[in-house]
Design a protein around this nucleic acid. Structure first.
Lengths: 204, 204
DNA sequence: GTCTATAGCTTGATAGAC
DNA sequence: GTCTATCAAGCTATAGAC
């Protein structure tokens, strides 16, 4: 879409490239996917693609931004603001995300692949992931602090430690699930959360 | 070494290649490291290298096997058999491993990279990782079962679930540590273990 | 056991026509 | 906006000399 709301042909192609790139980065990883492959699946040639995204790296960044938009849109079912959920709702949201991820192998592969690749300081997505982890960690600590104040955190649980555990569990369980789809990411995460709270998390 | 115990020049080269490959796969990932680069750092050409290991894939497998040998040798400080440690010693060993890993960024990068890459069923190291995870999981469940029988497991802790948590934590904490070296892998792991036991793990 | 030389392929990116 | 054509560079792997 252009700023004034009219869709052009170029924008349609741009969208198709973005969707296809997301799918292929997800299934094969960023490094293992070539610009040519993406272009071919969109019915154009690779210089055609590079007209819209000048480099492969620019395409990756656009894909990540688009992914965040989609996630935000989905979370806005009830116009919820993730960063300001109350403690229990925040933890419930993590479990729900894990359950939803189990229906999207491609997305899980993309982020599992990238979060390791992007660990290298010179990776195009390095800064994106540094910020992503820092922000998630901060949100979790805030939520756990609130739960501590409300007295529903099991004594001895340190918010910063539990936050690190939660993030590690989400990442680690994804690897186990990718290796063996019988892994219950959501259930496993929930059972950790229940050891942290004085009263189990409600819900499905 | 040849079967009868005599070292030959070829064997020395073989060893150098193995060590160098481990180092470079670790620092840059398997896919991003070329056979040429490895050969050059060994002072030979790449066809020279391919005489010893017919393909890059064969080299990877040899590196993984070598890594396991070294790990086993290190664990055998006191001639300990990892799979038959008693429960507490097994958990203490995990913490010690995490601490040791924090001195070897290369190795951590190699395994973090590979455990995600190898999630793809057609990856050369797929079977290796499937078996690695299954065996670690089995060992952990056995150890936790023993602790449960001894009555030192906090009530409500399910061995299979705690085993999945421990593996996920080790993998996930590695990613956080690679992103930010201030992450305390060993401490974080230990604090999870302490929530699972009725009495904290002794030791440094 | 290691070399030179090279085949044969894929990659990301650019120039310039239409 | 998309194409053809092409570049320069990288890769794994092989053939055959020494």
């Amino acid at each position: 879409m252009t700023v004034d709301g009219r869709a052009t042909r170029g924008d349609a192609t741009r969208q198709a490239v973005l969707d296809t790139a997301l799918d292929m980065f997800a299934k094969q990883g960023y490094r293992a996917t070539s610009v040519r492959d993406i272009a071919a699946r969109c019915g154009i040639t690779h210089p055609g693609l590079l007209y819209h995204f000048p480099t492969k790296e620019a395409l990756l960044k656009a894909v990540l931004e688009r992914r965040d938009e989609v996630d935000r849109a989905e979370a806005d079912d009830g116009v919820v603001d993730f960063a300001n959920l109350d403690g229990r709702a925040l933890l419930a949201h993590l479990v729900a995300s894990a359950a939803k991820n189990a229906t999207k192998r491609g997305i899980v592969e993309l982020f599992a692949n990238l979060s390791v690749e992007a660990t290298a300081p010179d990776h195009p997505a390095h800064q994106y992931f540094v910020e992503r982890y820092a922000s998630l960690r901060a949100t979790l600590i805030r939520g756990l602090d609130a739960l501590a104040s409300a007295g529903v955190l099991r004594p001895g649980v340190v918010p910063a430690t539990a936050a690190a555990h939660l993030i590690a569990l989400m990442d680690g369980l994804q690897i186990q699930w990718l290796l063996d789809a019988r892994t219950d990411m959501a259930g496993s995460l929930r059972s950790y959360i229940d050891t942290v709270l004085t009263e189990p998390l409600a819900g499905p």
